[in-house]
C-alpha cells in the first residue's frame, strides 16, 4: 500500500477509535456499498487483535438489488456479526414504493425515517457512516463528528469547529452524533484501497451483461419483476456496472467493460462524470443538504 493510502487508513482508524472510546452505544451504518465495505474493513482493523464489538445497521427499503442483500447476509454469516436490519414496514404497508412516489418522498419515508427509528429504538449515541466530503458539494463542509440535534436534525450553523484533529463529542440529552471516518477519502482512494487490501465488494460494481431499460437517458437495471415497464421501454442486455449502489429503480448503471478493480481505477482516471450522477435523487437543487437537515445520512 502506498504512503498516501496508509496515511488515510491511519486517520480513519484513529477516528473510529475516537468514536469507540467516547460513546457508550456506537453503531456502524452499513449500506452494503463500497464505502461501507471499506468502513467495515477499517472498523475491524481499528480494534484488531480484539474483535469488533459494535453492531452493523442496514436500512433496508426492500428495493435494494438482490445481489446486495445476498452479499450482506453472507458477510454477516461469515464474520458472525450482529447485523440489525431495519425497514419502515408501516410506509410499505401504506403503499410506499419508488415507482409511484417522488424519489425524495420515497427516500424520506424508507431511508430517513427508518434510520431515525432504528437509532432511537436502540439508543445509539453515535452512528458511524461511510460518507465522503468529495461526494457532493454540501458535504465539503461536513464535520468528521457531526452533531445532530434532538430529532436527528442537522443544523449547519451549530456544527463544532474541528481544530488540530481534536473532537468535541459531548452530547446534550436527546442529541446524537454522526461520525464519518472516510471524510477525507476520494472515490479513487476508495478503489485503490479496495484493490490494495483485496476487500470483497458486491459484484454489481464490476461490469457484466445485465438486463436494463433506458429511462430518462439513464440505464435502469431490471432486477426483479416489480419494475413497471412503459409501453415504449424494451429490456436490453448491456455490459454495465454501478458506481454507487442503492435502490435498484433509483440507481443508474453505466456502460463499462471494467471487470476488476484495476480496470475500474483506470476508468475512473478518465471519467468526466461524478459518481452521484447515477443517483436520481440528488439532482434537484440543494437536495442533499435538505435531506441532511431532516436526518438523512
Amino acid at each position: 500500500m502506498d504512503t498516501h493510502l496508509k496515511a488515510l487508513e491511519a486517520e480513519a482508524i484513529g477516528i473510529l477509535r475516537e468514536a469507540q472510546a467516547r460513546f457508550a452505544r456506537p453503531v456502524l451504518l452499513y449500506s452494503i456499498g463500497k464505502d461501507s465495505s471499506v468502513l467495515y474493513h477499517l472498523a475491524r482493523k481499528a480494534v484488531a487483535p480484539a474483535a469488533l464489538a459494535m453492531p452493523l445497521l442496514h436500512v433496508d427499503t426492500t428495493y435494494k438489488f438482490r445481489e446486495m442483500i445476498a452479499f450482506r447476509d453472507a458477510l454477516a454469516a461469515r464474520d458472525r456479526i450482529e447485523m440489525i436490519v431495519r425497514t419502515n414496514h408501516e410506509a410499505l404497508g401504506q403503499g410506499m414504493n419508488p415507482f409511484d412516489h417522488d424519489a425524495s418522498v420515497y427516500t424520506a419515508a424508507m431511508k430517513t425515517v427508518a434510520l431515525r427509528q432504528a437509532l432511537d429504538e436502540h439508543g445509539f449515541d453515535v452512528a458511524i457512516g461511510g460518507a465522503r466530503r468529495d461526494e457532493e458539494r454540501s458535504r465539503a463542509k461536513e464535520r468528521i463528528f457531526s452533531l445532530r440535534e434532538p430529532g436527528h436534525r442537522w443544523e449547519p450553523r451549530n456544527q463544532r469547529p474541528e481544530f488540530f484533529g481534536l473532537y468535541n463529542t459531548r452530547l446534550a440529552p436527546g442529541a446524537t452524533m454522526r461520525c464519518f471516518p472516510l471524510s477525507n477519502w476520494t472515490e479513487l482512494d476508495i478503489w485503490r484501497y479496495i484493490e490494495a487490501e483485496r476487500i470483497p465488494i458486491v459484484p454489481l460494481y464490476y461490469a457484466r451483461p445485465r438486463p436494463v431499460v433506458r429511462r430518462n437517458g439513464q440505464l435502469i437495471m431490471v432486477d426483479d419483476g416489480r419494475l413497471p415497464l412503459q409501453p415504449d421501454e424494451r429490456v436490453e442486455t448491456l455490459t454495465v456496472r454501478f458506481r454507487t449502489l442503492g435502490c435498484y429503480p433509483l440507481t443508474a448503471a453505466v456502460e463499462s467493460d471494467a471487470t476488476d478493480n484495476a480496470a475500474i481505477i483506470r476508468e475512473l482516471l478518465h471519467t468526466r462524470h461524478s459518481e452521484r450522477i447515477g443517483r436520481v435523487i440528488d439532482h434537484v437543487g440543494s437536495s442533499m443538504e435538505d435531506k441532511k437537515r431532516e436526518g438523512y445520512f
Binding site: 502506498d2 498516501h4 496508509k6 488515510l8 479513487l188 485503490r192 480496470a263 481505477i265 483506470r266 482516471l269
Partner: peptide
C-alpha cells in the same frame, strides 16, 4: 494495452 495504473503516491496527501 490498458492504460497504466496510477503510480503509487509516495508521500501522504
Amino acid at each position: 494495452l490498458p492504460a497504466p495504473l496510477p503510480a503509487p503516491l509516495l508521500r501522504p496527501r
